[in-house]
């Protein structure tokens, strides 16, 4: 057998092994389709608002990517609305919220207003949060989506949901990227 043939067969064999490994051994995961630009109907009830919040929390907002016991990259939020008052009294709090609802909203829109100790950006002594502002960057939540997440967090904490759905009661469209 000529050297060329031997080398060609050897190279094809190596490529074949890598391909087979990637196709047959690695678990087949099909990525989700890109999110639709028209996200969801505008919620008209508190329940719809909470449902939208949960959907955004686990989907478009990508909150659960970090705020989960598995990831461990950010504080857990099961109790976020309950401990909000304590956070606002903390000496390191730099925000302007006057209520738990405002504090939660502020945490999403200005994450560095208060950084939970141990979760700050490296080298900033817990003064800067690594979390992006949710209305900007690739997350790009709309006003109603941010409010929906706040409602969902209140619901998750078992406190009264104080966020009110907006609109005239007619289902509309929430725009998002």
């Amino acid at each position: 057998m000529s050297n060329f043939l031997k080398v060609a067969l050897f190279s094809l064999f190596i490529i074949g092994i890598y391909t087979l490994y990637s196709v047959k051994i690695i678990p087949p995961i099909t990525p989700e389709a890109p999110p639709k630009e028209e996200a969801s109907a505008e919620p008209v009830t508190v329940e719809e608002l909470i449902a939208l919040g949960e959907q955004v929390y686990n989907g478009k907002g990508a909150c659960a990517l970090c705020h989960s016991p598995v990831a461990g990259r950010a504080p857990l939020l099961e109790n976020a609305a309950v401990i909000a008052e304590d956070r606002m009294k903390d000496k390191n709090y730099k925000g302007k919220a006057a209520s738990a609802e405002e504090y939660l909203y502020e945490s999403l829109a200005e994450p560095s207003a208060f950084v939970v100790p141990g979760f700050g950006l490296a080298g900033t002594n817990d003064t800067v949060s690594p979390m992006p502002a949710v209305q900007a960057s690739a997350i790009g939540l709309s006003e109603i989506e941010i409010k929906a997440v706040v409602a969902y967090l209140q619901h998750l904490s078992g406190v009264e949901v104080t966020v009110k759905p907006e609109g005239d009661g007619t289902p509309g469209e929430v725009k998002s990227k």
């Binding site: 890598y18 678990p27 990517l65 970090c66 960057s137 690739a138």
Partner: peptide, 25 residues
């Protein structure tokens, strides 16, 4: 990660995490 945690997690902890196993091989 510094630019976007979301992008970083997509890379290393999400869909593409398995790709790094192939890279390791």
């Amino acid at each position: 990660y510094a630019y976007s945690q979301q992008m970083g997690i997509t890379l290393m902890g999400g869909l593409f995490a398995w790709l790094f196993i192939i890279q390791a091989v």
